[in-house]
Design a protein around this nucleic acid. Structure first.
Lengths: 130, 130
DNA sequence: TAGAATAAAGATAATGATTATCGTTATTGA
DNA sequence: TCAATAACGATAATCATTATCTTTATTCTA
């Protein structure tokens, strides 16, 4: 891990990312932090999120409505993204290990993430309700 | 499916998308078509790709390096995306059905796509070779 | 089949998320 | 303490995508 200076802002951003389950975008995280950390800039949030990725402290879940979403939980776990409402769900009960083995055996590729997309329970219900 | 006028350009774009296995971006498809279809505009490619999505004639595979990638094959199938070289691979041998059932049972969510990300065989080899 | 109504096209301006730049401030290490 | 470097906030720049506008093609009807 590269050497970084101490930075209260960075620490605050990381704590905020760890504290939420909503897999926020840079913008969302920024808005949520403005209250607690007055004067923080959007560029600082973007900058530090990229450092977290670089340092293996966070992962990118993917893009939802054109915005990248982040997760401080780097343990390999499956994500579900609802294409209707944009919610990102941790699917801790769905083990990607078997699929990863299959992928390696059949394609020689090393997967480090698995993302499912579709309609979440709530949006799916709304659709079937008409 | 909404009514559309006949359009040679649209047909050409769709044929080009169907003909390739590389899951191109709008830009890539546009560049590939300029020779065969002189005078075609980038906006026309974007416009028609969106119509294909709308009409269920194509799917979005996801974003690779900030660019959306498309596939004319709408049969449910797994994709692998190499984060190093950007290659998108059809994993026809990896059946997402079981995972989808699991997702529905455990989370009530309806998945319509499954995407794995990581390093393809070639890039993985390069890493291990050092 | 002409001609109005609508869809599609090409060019390009606008948008919006992200990144780069720049001057300033904080941190580090000698 | 102080020079070197990292981080910051503000904001300009970038780049993929979308919207707009004018022209051209297609369709539908009288």
């Amino acid at each position: 891990m590269p050497t970084r200076n101490k930075s209260d802002k960075r620490d605050a951003i990381y704590e905020a990312l760890k504290a939420t389950k909503e897999h926020p975008s840079a913008e969302t995280l920024y808005e949520a932090m403005r209250e607690k950390v007055p004067g923080i800039g959007l560029a600082t949030v973007y900058r530090n999120l990229n450092l977290f990725l670089e340092d293996g402290m966070a992962i990118s879940v993917g893009f939802v409505n054109g915005k990248e979403r982040f997760d401080a939980n780097c343990m390999p776990h499956t994500h579900f993204i609802c294409e209707k409402c944009g919610t990102v769900i941790d699917c801790d009960d769905i083990d990607p290990a078997e699929i990863k083995v299959e992928l390696m055996e059949k394609y020689g590729a090393e997967a480090n993430s698995m993302v499912l997309r579709g309609l979440c329970a709530l949006c799916n219900k709304k659709v079937s309700d008409g």
